[in-house]
Amino acid sequence: MSRAPEPRFDEIIHAPVRLRICGLLRRVDQLEFGLVRQTLDVSAPTLSKHLRTLTEAGYVRLTKSPDATRADARLLTWIHLTPCGTAALDAHLAALREIVGTEH
């Protein structure tokens, strides 16, 4: 049985777009850049900027892979929440729930 995370407010994750990026990644192994951009309805430069912040914090890892379904050489960017990012997100969500005063 896994223990409930200790609530810890994280300033890096709390920025709305960054919280939403991490929230999407929490339940999957990896998501492609374009799908995250489409789901969050943000521009590519905005998403890139927030991903850079998360990557520098060690919360997110980016990998590139070829797209076999396309004729050009465009690479797909896959986004993965690192174990450190997962722990920080879980602690931040626990902090938010504590603020709300529910177990949500």
């Binding site: 407010f9 300033e11 709390h14 709305p16 919280l19 939403r20 929230g23 999407l24 339940r27 789901t39 969050l40 969500l93 902090a95 938010l96 729930r97 603020i99 709300v100 005063g101 949500h104």
Partner: peptide, 21 residues
């Protein structure tokens, strides 16, 4: 900071995550 976040703002953030999923 943890203390400056309004409970309604925190609740909205959690709801947004549900909607995103």
């Amino acid at each position: 900071t943890h203390h400056s976040v309004d409970p309604s703002h925190a609740a909205q953030a959690l709801r947004t995550l549900d909607g995103d999923r």
